[in-house]
Amino acid sequence: MSHFTLLSRVSALAVMTVLTSCAALPRSGPNEGAIVSEATAHIGKGAQKVGIDYVLVDLDKSIMSYLERYEPASFEAGFGGGRGGAPDITIGRGDILQLSVFEAQAGGLFIPADAGARPGNYVTLPQQEVDRKGNIAVPYAGDVHVEGLTADVVRRQIEERLANRAIEPQVVVTVVESRSNLVSVIGDVNAPKKVEISQNGERVLDAIADAGGISTPSLETYITLLRGGREATVLYDTLVKTPKENIYLAPDDVLSVNRERRTYMVFGAASATGRINFDDANLTLGQALGEAGGLSDTQADPAQVFVYREESRDQLQRMGVDMTKFAGSDIPVIYRANLRDPSAYFAISKFAMRDRDIIYISNAKTYELTKFLDIINNVSTTNGGVPSDVLNARNAIRGF
């Protein structure tokens, strides 16, 4: 039979089916036409485009340098303090201080001449709290402003004030209790608490450890640092593996530890579709496709593998995309990988997946025709030759 005769029979059968059999076909509920026609009100464009503008980016060598590593936020970049020594810890309101004053010999301002047996020529003053004005009271030195100063600076100030009255005075300033240099650690930790910052400094992981460590899987745990109206969020695994992100904390910082399930969606011609959990902190597109069982051999078009996500405006500008047609800071983007190209497999092994990415694998054109022929083959007809012709055509297409 000629191809023209086959197509004629198929077309005639399709038309007959549409005209005479639609109402009799089984279905689980009302069809799209009934739903639309019975609606009291309708908002939307119907079968037209949704209306969301997006950028289509084909994965190639020039693009991969922007996508190999994804760092959505950074403690080190946002706050600094990842390297070098610990920041100076200053005295604040509410702190409890204790002063010890030494003199070179007895008979001075603080040590009487008939002191008798003493462990040394010094006197320890009662502990006192830094008042609301940031001051402490020192005998013979008056009120001394200590707020915002280090213990060493306060020591020198008091020694200078006593120099003309005491005998070669030396002062030791001890912070007995720091109430102003605290960091709050909250969320999914075993013992939420306020952590005091020591003179040696406390890093993010130090504070989390002091709060008993995280109580959730590290791969799904995010650490958010809030400081002075700014914030940044880093995955716990990234924090552990990247020393520069383990920055020093500052007074009044808040560390919020939260578990968030990291997933991506797979649709279309994959061996397995649905929502899939990340099993690696640095999951790549190649690994994600592997988790989904790869592309369907009988259904997928390897040249049309898409990843849907929102990309920052700055990132797209660095890629050279003309952003004059787009508004906002986050732009919808579809990345396309052509897996018919052998070198594309190197690209997808470096393409970093992100939380809530969507992978869509398009059907091959021949598969769409095969589905149509399957429908025709299953429709009863009085023309006995058509089903066998359709079956032969379908099998031939599947053989491509």
Rank of each mutant, 00 (worst) to 15 (best):
V390D: 00
T273G: 11
V333E: 03
V254M: 06
Y335R: 03
D210M: 13
R340I: 12
E196P: 05
L295F: 07
A137C: 10
E231I: 08
A352H: 09
A151Q: 12
G142F: 03
N121Y: 06
T17Y: 00
L162W: 04
V305F: 00
T273E: 06
T263L: 01
R261M: 11
V130A: 08
K133E: 14
A23G: 14
V189E: 03
G187S: 10
N246R: 10
I348F: 00
A292L: 10
E147G: 15
Q304L: 11
Q299M: 15
N338E: 09
T273Y: 05
R69E: 15
N395Q: 15
V146Q: 02
A106K: 08
R262W: 01
R203L: 01
A117F: 13
I35K: 13
L19M: 10
G142H: 03
A300D: 00
P139S: 08
D131I: 05
I276F: 13
G286D: 09
R69C: 10
E76R: 12
P72R: 11
G94C: 06
T124I: 12
L226Y: 14
S178T: 13
G92K: 02
T382K: 10
A269E: 01
Q48G: 05
S37I: 02
A344T: 04
N277M: 10
V379C: 03
R356G: 11
N31Y: 06
A300N: 00
A23S: 14
A14W: 04
H3N: 13
I96F: 12
V266T: 03
D58W: 05
M323W: 11
G82W: 03
L97Q: 00
E147V: 15
A86I: 05
F326M: 03
R261D: 11
T366K: 13
T263V: 05
V57S: 02
V321E: 06
R156V: 14
P119R: 15
L369D: 05
K193H: 10
A113R: 13
T224W: 03
M64C: 05
I167V: 13
C22I: 12
T284I: 07
G92W: 00
V101Q: 05
V130R: 04
G94W: 01
Y140V: 07
I63H: 02
D253P: 02
D210P: 03
A141H: 06
Q317P: 08
I331C: 05
Y264G: 00
M16K: 14
I334A: 04
G82D: 06
G116Q: 08
G85L: 12
M64Y: 06
D188Y: 09
R179E: 04
Y360I: 07
N190M: 14
S349V: 06
Y54T: 02
L25P: 03
I167W: 07
Y248H: 02
L289K: 01
G108C: 11
S184D: 11
S215Q: 05
F4K: 13
